[in-house]
Design a protein around this nucleic acid. Structure first.
Length: 584
RNA sequence: GCUCCCAUAGCUUAACGGAUAAAGCAACGGUCUUCUAAACCGUAGAGUGUUGGUUCGAUUCCAACUGGGAGCGCCA
């Protein structure tokens, strides 16, 4: 099933094909930025005229004459320098609405050639409680996983947790000295983090503590039974605590293969890199250097200093024999290739690590994994009101747990004001869905590359482009159906006459375009924008067009429109990881 | 020093090389005896950091510059 845009594009392509024997690159049809001009436009004539050195308006006229689209749109206008503007016919809109009214995928068929994606997101450290910095990765990654899954791809989600590394030496040392098994069980993050902080503080001043921590780490890495047992306990309790948070967030993973999972593979990775000549020893460490095949400007293994290029190697083994996270990342790439047969891997990681990923991906290509498409889907920082990385008043990280609690509580308070008659338990349930939805949506609704200034006012502002606004449109429709005593829309002829009906119908048909756009660019904010516009058009329709009080044929037609709107809003929000409620 | 990212109404943002740059918030003024006012309608508000270039056409591409942020061998 094509969207109107896809259908018009196919018709334009066919016409272009008839007019030009070597068919030029596919022309495109896009929505008119200004609806006064029409619903869709193509600039195909402008592009073709440039190629053929012809008059664009003449070409546009020829193209218009060659188009066969009487069943879906009026004969196009030729406008400006040679645009063709299309206006869809109400009968076509109505027919397309009817087709989607009985389609559970709302007019978006699954892809014909599914690919296997691995999506890597969230990735907290198990010795530290999750904080606000993990929110974007978790929420974005989850939304992208849902989007690609819905499109019909095979999606494997993997939480690459930090469960190994130098920090654990300090934790082991500190835990042995003043750990408390009961506290560990009850609040693993709180306990481990306070231990970690204390030892880190002491180690700054005391060389012997630094040494002791290092010895614990070496013991752990050598497989010492006592340290391994402790580490396993840290892992077990931390994973349980993480689970609680993820359940609350509504974020899921197929796998949680942390750094420790790749431990045993690391020596082999380095040996392989050395054998292949990709890496060599340098100052006691092992590193990957430039192979000179790229222009120095584009070579991630070179950096320009004072006018000449210096090495900027990627370290894969430290001079003390330990491994870097680059090594783990390379082992992970190999595993995802060999074991998951991934065609594409998305890393949902903040933008500060761009250099690391450029080096990592270049190293992976040279290592022979060039057929796999590796993408760093990066996002901006979360800043406080002072535009500096966000901290609590005490200077610590803002805990995710506290954040979720506050979102739910604040939403609950607003609901209590608006709906005092609801029972307490119901209000709490609504607060959870609305608060969490607002929190996630605020993050998803803006371009991920921008820094994000955190503020409660903004997060829980329930006006404008927010989750509650969109959820509310859904609630209004459900309320109509409750009032009508109907579970779903009647099977009815769809007839569209009012401007508000036509605008709503046209927007409903664009759903698949927005999903494709959001997925292909890894930018869920396109879908948010679509849902906001859809909700706005629904509210306008609701204002202008009575539903239940209209005469029978109009009433049923409008109920079909309402039902499709509700299902589109629900599915769209679901693809973002946001729930709906039946009333609010 | 080098590399990367960002710069659009008072604020937060949108714009998939196209037409008179689009929304929300805040401001101001309206609409609840009519399917839930977490709604709707209206007014005012920018020419996209600067200077060039490519193009029939640039917020979008290229170059230089300015301002802000981040990163640059044994942390992840």
């Amino acid at each position: 099933m094509n969207t109107p845009r896809q259908e018009l594009e196919a018709r334009v392509a066919a016409a272009v094909h008839r007019l030009f024997s070597p068919a030029p690159p596919a022309p495109y049809v896009r929505p008119c930025p200004d609806l006064r001009h029409g619903d869709f436009q193509t600039n195909a004539a402008l592009v073709l005229a440039k190629e053929a050195k012809a008059n664009p308006r003449d070409l546009a006229a020829k193209l218009a004459a060659a188009l066969a689209l009487a069943d879906l749109a009026d004969q196009p206008d030729i406008a400006g320098p040679g645009f063709l503007n299309f206006r869809l016919k109400p009968a076509y809109l109505a027919q397309q609405i009817s087709l989607r009214a009985t389609d559970s995928r709302l007019g978006l068929p699954a892809v014909a050639n599914p690919e296997t994606f691995v999506i890597d997101y969230s990735s907290p450290n198990i010795a530290k409680e999750m904080h606000v910095g993990h929110l974007r990765s978790s929420v974005l990654g989850d939304a992208l996983a849902r989007l690609y899954r819905f499109l019909g791809h095979t999606v494997i989600t993997d939480n690459h947790i930090g469960d190994w590394g130098t920090g654990f030496g300090m934790i082991l040392f500190g835990y042995k000295r003043d750990g408390d098994p009961e506290k560990l069980r009850q609040d693993p993050f709180g306990h481990l983090e306070s231990i970690y902080r204390r030892v880190q503080e002491e180690a700054k001043a005391d060389e012997s503590i630094r040494e002791a921590a290092k010895r614990e780490l070496v013991l752990l890495q050598q497989g010492d039974a006592a340290n391994l047992e402790l580490w396993n306990r840290f892992l077990k309790y931390s994973l349980e605590a993480l689970d609680t948070i993820y359940r609350r967030l509504g974020v899921k993973f197929d796998h949680t293969l942390g750094e420790s999972f790749y431990n045993d593979a690391l020596p082999g990775v380095v040996a392989d890199l050395l054998k292949l000549g990709l890496a060599r020893e340098s100052e006691g460490a092992v590193a990957i250097f430039s192979d000179g095949k790229l222009p120095p400007k584009d070579d991630p293994f070179l950096v320009s200093r004072d006018g000449k290029y210096d090495d900027n190697p990627l370290l894969v083994r430290k001079s003390d024999g330990g491994y870097n996270y680059a090594t783990t990342d390379l082992a992970t790439i190999r595993y995802r290739h060999d074991h998951f047969h991934a065609k594409r891997v998305l890393y949902i990681v903040d933008g500060r690590q761009q250099m690391h990923f450029r080096q990592l991906f270049a190293a992976a290509r040279r290592w022979g994994y060039g057929a796999m498409d590796l993408e760093h889907v990066w996002f901006g920082a979360i800043l406080g009101a002072d535009k500096k990385p966000i901290k609590t008043r005490e200077g610590g990280d803002v805990k995710l747990k506290a954040l979720l609690a506050e979102a739910e509580e604040r939403a609950g308070k607003i609901i209590a004001e608006k709906r005092p008659e609801l029972p307490e338990a119901e209000r709490a349930a609504l607060g959870r869905v609305v608060g969490l939805g607002a929190l996630k949506y605020a993050d998803l609704a803006q371009n991920r590359n921008l820094d994000y200034v955190f503020s409660w006012e903004k997060l829980l502002a329930f006006d404008g482009n927010t989750a509650p606004y969109v959820q509310n449109a859904y609630v209004r429709i459900r309320s109509l159906f409750r009032k009508a005593g109907l579970e779903q829309a009647p099977v009815a002829e769809v007839a569209l006459t009012e401007p508000a009906e036509l605008a709503l119908a046209a927007k409903l048909l664009d759903f698949a375009d927005s999903v494709h756009l959001a997925a292909s660019e890894y930018r869920p904010h396109y879908l948010c924008l679509y849902l906001f516009e859809l909700a706005t058009l629904f509210h306008k329709f609701y204002e202008a067009c009575p539903v239940l009080t209209a005469a029978a044929p109009v009433r049923d037609s409008r109920l079909v429109l309402c039902d499709l709107t509700a299902r589109t809003l629900r599915l769209g929000l679901d693809l973002l990881g946001i729930e709906v409620v039946e009333q609010m």
